[in-house]
Design a protein around this nucleic acid. Structure first.
Lengths: 356, 356
DNA sequence: AACATCTGGTGAAACGATTTATTGTAAGCT
DNA sequence: AGCTTACAATAAATCGTTTCACCAGATGTT
């Protein structure tokens, strides 16, 4: 009836017949410890099934091998993939991740940030809910923070994002070049920097095309109503360009319900290329964001900061790829048959956009 | 040039003019501390921006508010949603999550398990890569473990899974009742318990329907080839039933490439109902798994174990829902037009399957 | 008055690691 | 031999908490 506690460094030391300091030195690969002792320690470790206690280790050494990750919504495939990539990269560098989802709620984000702070992570990677992120970062938070994907209202942060404006502009130009006269642009909220930048990119790019913006929120029934009313209205827009994945799902479903389909009745394009956009027939013209790259760069930057690199906050914009597919094709308007074969898929090379 | 370290409990104590013990008592809501001191401590905490150090706290109190989560692949929407739900529930109970993805690699899973152990989590929720999970759990791991979704070869674990056999059987029966004569069943590996159970459920359920199993692996080009050859073969099966989401994506894409479509040329059904299956036309008959429920039950069970509930390992099987849609409809074989409207969607009530 | 029982509070000992200072020993150099 | 230098190993201090034993004073009980 004793207490078989999980083995500590002390037990290892006893069993190996050395001091705890020596065990620590062996475990951390410090030089100046004789080969036979290394062996004895290793054996003892194995026999006891010992594993260091990261908490205690961090407490004393003041070095944490833990990073925090905050995303708006883990169920969004974009963010899931972001986290997944991050998690792998971090692991390679010996870091673990505390992952939290803010569920699109700034309050919750603030709460999670406060909470995560108590784990004393070496750094933080955050995709903020909205622009007011700076106000939610607990004051006195000293670990480096790298933001991704969304731009904060206040500057002063390291940031990895994509070139929203140019990508959206490229799609708008494509739509225009297909001969569409007007285009309804749909997005969750203009208060989200991505949506805003994309909308502005469109306005900057178009020449003759008439564009009109509609905000429909996130999981908001009223927004869904607004969209449906607009699509049922007497004047169906020539094309529909949706600026985020959530809205795309809603829009595509709504179109199906109403019985209009792309490109027969309307041109359709979307941000955030997803698997399903390639699977539906005809497949959907979309902007593909380099999520993995984003994760990679964010992690690289954070790691540099953790290792002590000073310097002004850096902002990097990554280039998106444009996938032109059937849903915006004017020539497919009549014969919707061929489409699913995927032969229509191509990558826009015009301007700064490069092929796969 | 001093060292503005992140505030510790000692600084709070000094500022409030009390002992650290008192601060600790206030922070942990212990009784027997006078109201004015509580106030003074609270003020000091606020002024300093103090937040407890979970690591130190855990070290001393031996109670961890951290749980580990291991999934085979975070980019799989099923698992992403599982983690997301879990994360929310855990937070409500004051727990944070260390999340790791094994990337479908048992080796990596073993590595992550070892690693996660060093965080001394209060418990673990794992969706194992394969049945040999027990061998990968570091020996001497003392925190409670709850497995989910996949069944380990060796018993002795708490387990929350779904009723694979019955659900797969129901789909098979449906396919049979539609008049299909034979059915090709496709899945990643039979060594994954889910796939195995589903396959067995099918064989148990069918009467006249001829069934045949094809394993195509995970992200395996050879498997993709096998599938393509089979579908290009002289004898196209009447129906195709795919047993996991990854394989479904591959199968659906392959069909499109070859130019066969459901239900015109072949009946098509799948496990793991996903958004895209509702978006393609006609939409796809699928088994919808109660992922959120699974997460909920897994968390509830783990929490109970953490709180000290003893008792034999429990196994719970949750019921899946069946979504009968156009892709298996015999009557749609001729007129593939109507389908996208989704009017075909319904929920099988037969047997133990209940409607939405 | 003497004794037990609360009450609000504190100092100091853990927890499991790393780091620093220290010691003893062996080797290297005049 | 005498003196420095280098090496191996350790004891002890420390990180930020919680907990335990204890204390002084007030209150209650006989």
């Amino acid at each position: 009836m004793s207490k078989p506690r999980t083995p500590s460094i002390k037990m290892v030391a006893d069993r190996a017949g050395v001091s705890v300091a020596t065990v620590s030195n062996v475990l951390n690969g410090k030089p100046n410890v004789s080969p036979d002792l290394v062996l004895r320690v290793r054996d003892a470790v194995k026999e006891l099934g010992y594993a260091v206690d990261f908490g205690a280790s961090r407490l004393r050494s003041r070095k944490s091998q833990l990073a925090g990750v905050v995303v708006p919504d883990l169920t969004n495939p974009m963010f899931a993939s972001f986290v997944s990539t991050l998690e792998h990269l971090a692991r390679v560098d010996g870091f673990d991740l505390v992952v939290v989802s803010a569920r699109n709620d700034p309050e919750e984000e603030a709460d999670r940030l406060r909470n995560i702070r108590s784990w004393r992570p070496a750094g933080l990677i955050v995709i903020p809910c909205d622009g007011a992120f700076a106000k939610r970062l607990p004051e006195g938070f000293s670990a480096p923070v790298v933001l991704a994907d969304r731009i904060p209202d206040e500057p002063g942060f390291d940031l990895i994002a994509v070139d929203n404006s140019a990508a959206a502009g490229a799609i708008a130009t494509h739509i225009e070049s297909q001969g569409y006269k007007d285009c309804l642009v749909v997005g969750s909220w203009l208060s989200i920097s991505n949506v805003r930048e994309r909308w502005e990119g469109i306005r900057k790019a178009v020449k003759r095309l008439e564009v009109e913006m509609l905000e429909i929120g996130i999981d908001d029934p009223e927004g869904a109503d607004r969209l449906e009313r607009r699509l049922r209205g007497r004047q169906l827009p020539g094309a529909l360009f949706v600026l985020d994945h959530g809205s795309s799902l809603l829009a595509y479903r709504t179109m199906a319900e109403i019985g209009i389909s792309a490109p027969r009745d309307i041109g359709f394009a979307s941000f955030d290329d997803m698997e399903w956009m390639r699977l539906v027939a005809p497949s959907i013209t979309a902007v593909r964001q380099p999520v993995e790259d984003m994760a990679e760069q964010a992690w690289a930057l954070l790691l540099r900061r953790i290792r002590g690199s000073a310097g002004d906050p850096a902002t990097r914009r990554l280039r998106c790829a444009i996938e032109i597919r059937g849903s915006t094709s004017r020539s497919l308007r009549q014969d919707a048959g061929e489409a699913q074969k995927g032969g229509m898929t191509c990558t826009l090379q015009e301007g700064r956009y490069s092929p796969e």
